[in-house]
């Protein structure tokens, strides 16, 4: 968090402050605790500059901000796809990712990582496997689930997403929207405790965006905790329980969607929101 942040951030700092100590009885422990995250590419490019966030169970956090501001990198770090230079992340109270100060190596707890699912911008389905096998590969190989029960679960999930007819099809026969729904189903097969969505609708044709957002809204109704990076402000408004404006590698503003999207307190947030809403 930036030092110069005015009122709203101090408020949230207060809240974090109470949680940093022993949590009061009745308050749930934070699901994710990101502390002082630093991450750069090469010697000159610093993408994350001491970013800290706490996320409560059941929260749906939408991260917005200018490109290059570190949103996607934050998500990739949360997924354990990137090495970090400094900082730590705890998940459900357990240590998850830690940068060792000297060795320049990041330790990532892979058992914790399995509780997190991620959906990418470019679908990343396995093109050589049909939809059903895309879904059951990880449950069978990671959790040792038997093929029959995994297949049954996969079919049920596909039916829920309106894709039961595509179970035997290969990814190249699906539309972008269908592929993205399959990608979400594939991540859900592992019963994640947290879902990460990295600009999942930006590669889609406009008329296919709604079907994917619908599926994510469905998940939201079931209280799935999620972190969403998106450029779609209308979607952000609909789904978020909390919005974080991220720019220059730090959190600039953090609060409920009505505040951050509707009447931002930070000048940079306001500028960004105005620009984005005018373009759309």
């Amino acid at each position: 968090m930036t030092q110069s942040s005015p009122a709203p951030l101090l408020q949230s700092d207060d809240r974090l402050g109470t949680q940093r100590g022993a949590p009061a009885a009745g308050t749930a422990a934070p699901l994710v605790q990101v502390r002082n995250l630093h991450k750069g590419y090469g010697p000159n490019i610093r993408v994350l500059k001491g970013l800290s966030i706490d996320m409560q169970p059941g929260e749906r956090v939408v991260v917005i901000g200018p490109s290059g501001g570190g949103k996607s990198t934050l998500l990739r770090v949360l997924m354990g796809l990137e090495q970090i230079d400094e900082g730590s992340i705890r998940f459900a109270g357990k240590p998850y990712i830690e940068a060792s100060p000297a060795g320049r190596r990041t330790t990532i707890d892979t058992v914790v990582r399995r509780q997190i699912g991620m959906v990418f911008q470019h679908y990343t389905l396995f093109p050589h496997l049909n939809i059903l096998n895309n879904l059951i590969l990880a449950p069978c190989k990671v959790h040792g689930e038997n093929k029959a029960t995994a297949t049954a679960r996969a079919r049920a999930l596909l039916a829920r997403f309106g894709l039961e007819a595509k179970a035997e099809a290969y990814p190249n026969h699906l539309s972008g929207g269908q592929k993205q729904r399959v990608a979400i189903a594939r991540a859900l097969m592992l019963d994640p405790k947290l879902m990460l969505f990295d600009e999942v609708t930006s590669a889609l044709d406009p008329e296919l965006v709604a079907e994917v957002e619908q599926v994510i809204l469905q998940l939201a109704q079931q209280d799935m905790p999620m972190v969403i990076v998106t450029h779609d402000m209308w979607f952000a408004k609909n789904i978020a329980s909390r919005v974080i404006f991220c720019a220059g590698g730090v959190v600039v503003e953090d609060g409920p969607p009505e505040q951050v999207l509707g009447s931002p307190r930070e000048e940079r947030t306001r500028e960004f929101i105005e620009r984005v809403f005018h373009i759309r």
Partner: peptide, 24 residues
């Protein structure tokens, strides 16, 4: 991105090689 997807799904290295990388 294919490797990222494998990581996100928690696939063990051997599975990643045998079921995702080699077939493709």
């Amino acid at each position: 991105e294919q490797y990222d997807a494998c990581t996100a799904l928690g696939l063990p290295h051997a599975t990643q090689v045998v079921h995702v990388v080699l077939p493709q």
